[in-house]
Design a protein around this nucleic acid. Structure first.
Lengths: 234, 234
DNA sequence: CCAACTTGTCTACTTTACTAGACAACTTAG
DNA sequence: CTAAGTTGTCTAGTAAAGTAGACAAGTTGG
């Protein structure tokens, strides 16, 4: 009952203890029997949860010794007036990359049109991107821009390999976050695959509008972050 | 496979269409057969998803006619420099209430001590609260305050029925949000019950520190919001 | 070496999730 | 009134999740 399997809830719970700092790297987890008692389930159910965490690289089990914390970090992505992908994660990863998956021209749906302050149905450029930190997927984002002004954005983004730099080629020296809406939901099949998650993982969803200094919106974006890999800091 | 039941993912998906604005109140959903085809599952699995949504009051089914959107809103909780419970939801609900479930004195754990800038193990006041909008649970929060200064906070909060007003009785005219960390996870058994959720629902978790104008921290809080009922607006 | 504890693996069973199909009950358009 | 399309309810079967217990295999401390 509930629609979320026990082993997944237990895995989530233990992962939370680890990324939340209750357990540090190298610490030994409670034994499988003790965990089974703590969660009120059979030892086999605990073992399945631990198997998932081992698959993720969060813990490592050693026969006869116990199960140990292997990777304990969760990144913090800073969002605020000036939100920039690379700055928001500065110092937390060695390599940061934002990859363009695809782009196309389409007609603005109602929410896109409203955010960009254009009429519904007007042409917009849509970009699908994937961000990685140290090779691990960190976010899956979709962005929309007004076609009249940013028709060549995909090419320039691909060359500059940065949103900020691409905007600069359009004469936009600086821009700021106009609004950010945050929600959460389960990952769908596509996101699960691209972000290399276990199916059923939770995503933090950020719906944001970036605007020029005079308030004119230039970009509307929908970013999905795996909740188990990072938190958002306001 | 994945640990999240199909019917739950389908329910989440349909709910997202509704709170996301694709379907408005009174709109008719696609038929059960069509939905089954869309999600690639049996009609019974769709029916189970719809039963959950009907239980939540999101849709309403009528034999022979179809299934209709009953409640389409999702509240927006505004967070920023000056974050106040009642102001953050102003105009979105008729009645707002914050109920004190319990309070007790305990010793500060490491994260609590760090946030309040006191030594670990020092005495702190811990409050458990439940917030409701129009009678529906909106958040479950735990707050910690320095005992030396706020020993009587629970009593004063209970009388004032407001955090801001209770702080005022301690001579704190104004305070501001120092930091907010946002993550997401599944609800546990307790939260499921108190927030009246279906087990396995997703919570947005906000970890925040409030401070006086001079930067001295006065409150550390951990709030859990049902992701299906509201979004956070930065 | 041994006792106590750990994780690893196997079998057997029960409950829940999901599929499949049939038909009843109801509504609507023609 | 009727035909087509809707939701409601039933039975039956398969696959996955979870329980239960036993024992092997490894580690550690005395």
């Amino acid at each position: 009952m509930g629609g979320v399997a026990l082993w997944r809830r237990i895995a989530d719970d233990i992962r939370l203890d680890i990324v939340g700092g209750k357990l540090a790297r190298g610490d030994r987890l409670a034994g499988e029997m003790a965990l089974a008692e703590r969660f009120g389930v059979n030892r086999h159910t605990v073992r399945r949860a631990l198997a998932v965490l081992e698959e993720e690289g969060v813990v490592r089990s050693e026969q006869g010794r116990g199960t140990f914390v292997d990777r304990a970090q969760r990144l913090s992505y800073r969002i605020g007036k000036r939100t920039r992908f690379s700055e928001g994660l500065a110092g937390q990863a060695r390599s940061l990359e934002r990859r363009l998956l695809s782009s196309r021209i389409e007609n603005a749906t109602a929410p896109v049109a409203k955010a960009l302050r254009i009429r519904a149905g007007a042409k917009v450029v849509r970009l699908e991107t994937l961000s990685l930190a140290d090779g691990q997927p960190l976010s899956r984002a979709t962005s929309w821009l007004d076609y009249r002004r940013f028709a060549e954005f995909p090419e320039r983004f691909e060359r500059a390999r940065s949103v900020t730099a691409a905007f600069r080629t359009f004469g936009i020296a600086d821009y700021a976050r106009a609004s950010t809406h945050i929600s959460a939901r389960h990952a769908d099949a596509d996101e699960t695959k691209l972000l290399k998650l276990a199916p059923g993982a939770i995503l933090l969803v950020s719906e944001a509008v970036d605007a020029e200094e005079d308030g004119a919106p230039i970009q509307y974006g929908l970013s999905r972050f795996p909740a188990e890999r990072l938190e958002l800091v306001v």
